[in-house]
Write a protein that binds this DNA or RNA. Sequence first.
DNA 1: CAATGCCATGCAACCCGATTGCAAAGGTTA
DNA 2: TAACCTTTGCAATCGGGTTGCATGGCATTG
Lengths: 136, 136
Amino acid sequence: MIDKAERLLAVKSVKPTSVRILVLAHLLKDAKAQSLKDLEVSLYNTDRSSIFRTLKTFEEYKVVHSIDDGSGMMKYAVCAEGCNCDPKDLHYHFYCTNCSLTYCLLDNPIPIVTLPENFKMHQANMVIKGLCDKCP
Amino acid sequence: MIDKAERLLAVKSVKPTSVRILVLAHLLKDAKAQSLKDLEVSLYNTDRSSIFRTLKTFEEYKVVHSIDDGSGMMKYAVCAEGCNCDPKDLHYHFYCTNCSLTYCLLDNPIPIVTLPENFKMHQANMVIKGLCDKCP
DNA sequence: CAATGCCATGCAACCCGATTGCAAAGGTTA
DNA sequence: TAACCTTTGCAATCGGGTTGCATGGCATTG
C-alpha cells in the first residue's frame, strides 16, 4: 500500500514526503471516505494540522476529493483513475446514519439537471443518507 | 407576510409566539434558503439561540427543511405545500459560489439511484454548485 | 385572585471541526 | 558551509452550532 501511494504521488506530481505517503496509504487502504479525525486517530503520532494541509494539497492536485456528507466532518476519498473532479466525474455518495461510514457510489453517474436559465453548474455534492448493508 | 406566517403555524400546529412568527415571516419573504446568521442579522434584536431553537422546532414540525449546501452554514427554507420531508419530497438545491445564495430547484425530482444490495435510502442531500443568473 | 407549572426567551458559556501564525526541522542548491 | 524553500509540529484562534441556567410570560388550577 505504501508503494501504491508512492506511485500515485509520482503520477500526480506531488512530492512524496513521509506524512503524505502515510496519509495516502491510509486512504487507499479501504473504500470508505475518511475524515480528518479518522486519519488523526490512525496516524496517532502525526500532527493534525499536517494531515489537514496534506489533504488540502491532495485536493489541489486531484489526488483525493472531499465529500460533505452532512455529518459535520468533511470526508476524503482517493479519486478514481482518470478523475479530474469535473462535473462529469462526479458520483453519488452514501452516508450511513448508523455507522457514519461514507461510501462512493461509483456506478451511478450524476444525471443532467436542467437548471433555471443562465444558471451554470460547476460542481455538485450528492449525498444519499440511510442504512448500509451492515447496519440494521 | 405576518398573517401568512401565522396561518402556516396554525396549520402545522405550532404555537405562534412572537419569535416564531418573525422568523417564519422572514423565511417566507423570499425564495432563497437562509442561514441562522442571515436571520440573526435581519432580526437583530432577537437572540441567536432563540432563532436556533425556533428553527429546530420548525424542522420537527415540518415547517421548514434544512439544507447543507456545503457553505459551512446550514440553510433553512419553508417546505413546499404538501411536503412531508420524505425522500419523495426531496429536490435539488443550487448553491451560487459567488453570492452564496441557495435556491430550491423544485422542478427537478431526485432520480432513483440504484444502491448496492441491502442499502436503504432514507434521505438525500443534493446540491449543485455554480453561478446563478445574477452572477458573472 | 393567588399559586403552580410549563414553555419560550435571552444571555453566556461551551463544544468541536476547521484553519492559521509561527518557529523548528528537513532537504535542496549554490 | 551557507542560504533558501518546503514541510512539519505546536499552539492558538475562528466560527457555526449547541446547551445550561435563570428570567419572564402565559395558562391552568385551586
